[in-house]
Design a protein around this nucleic acid. Structure first.
Lengths: 199, 199
DNA sequence: GTCTATAAATCGATAGAC
DNA sequence: GTCTATCGATTTATAGAC
């Protein structure tokens, strides 16, 4: 009972998922605000109108991308080895998991980290980021209170520097680069031992 | 021989320097691409046309701001205590100086660190940043070769993480915050000893 | 040095045929 | 699901009066 192959439109795009991937790539290359719907449709090989058939607008694309990034980020808090052990052990496990998420969801998390807050969607993303950062800061305080790490600096400052060093990975990491298999552990070790420890 | 005071236009702006400061503030709040000349002139309290009398266009403003940021950044390499001593000592002095520059020239450096490369001016800024980062990376290699720091991770990775932790300061530092007088030394110490060193 | 007015291009988004 | 054509708003930038 073989049917005839489904009638195809002139230039079938790969579906909403494929278009989102293309759009996020363009957003990261030129910046969200500097990327026009014309740019997106050209990159996808369809017209602007066709793009609007899949997404209601530019902000809908941003929303879908940021939701994926936020979901990934928060999943680091629930990593298997992040739920047990001392505060410092859990914190170290979360750092490793966060680096893994950054690597696996690189374009989406990159976009999230560049959001400025111009629209409701962007403000929502910023709020979710603040919540995540607050969770990390609380864990740092727990680790200091438990006497597991040296409180040479303000725990709030330590949490900010931790976020900074981890998030900065999106500025240079590219998939397939040699020697990045150990990156999650390397970053966690650098955070606890120092990036440039004295001999 | 007192002359009459110079005839004044209806709403005298504070000159090009003042307008640049206002523009950089707007760029950092909304993002460069999302900020229109209309936004800038409204923030300055003059019309768009008047703004064009002081700057030839939006990109000229960006260029002036980025030049100031780049000059500040490179000045960290020439800090008095960065020219003598062992590689590790010089590296630590440069880190401190870089944090001081970030704090003193916060809005300009913030703008520099967000540049994407859409125009010739932005690509020039990215190229200058690459040159600066290469200088830091060379110093890290020197310190490792001299046996002053532990080469637990790839020196190139160490240099990237260093840049990440230092530059991330612009994401949260605000002038006048209490307890930031020791920030340059705190950041340098965290880089060498660890953000969360074990007890 | 400021203003009003406007040009010329581009933007996000929609209408409607196939 | 794709297309052509277009709308209305916005953008960068300029002309020219005061």
């Amino acid at each position: 009972m073989s049917e005839a192959p489904p009638r195809r439109a002139r230039r079938p795009s790969g579906g909403a998922g494929s278009l989102l991937e293309i759009a996020v790539g363009e957003f990261n290359t030129r910046g969200y605000d500097a990327t026009s719907m014309e740019d997106l449709s050209r990159a996808a090989g369809i017209t602007k109108s066709s793009f609007y058939h899949h997404f209601s607008g530019k902000e809908a694309l941003l929303r879908a991308a940021l939701e994926r990034a936020v979901d990934g980020l928060f999943s680091a808090l629930d990593a298997p080895d992040a739920l047990t052990g001392s505060p410092a052990e859990r914190l170290r496990a979360i750092l490793r998991a966060q680096v893994r998420v950054l690597m696996a969801e690189l374009p989406y998390v990159t976009l999230l980290l560049r959001v400025r807050g111009n629209t409701e969607t962007e403000r929502w993303a910023l709020e979710r980021r603040r919540t995540y950062d607050a969770e990390i800061a609380a864990l740092v305080r727990d680790a200091v209170d438990a006497g597991e790490v040296r409180a040479g600096i303000d725990p709030a400052l330590a949490a900010r520097l931790l976020s900074g060093v981890v998030n900065s990975i999106v500025e240079w990491y590219r998939p397939g680069r040699p020697g990045t298999a150990t990156l999650p552990e390397d970053v966690a070790a650098a955070a606890f031992t120092g990036i440039l420890p004295a001999r």
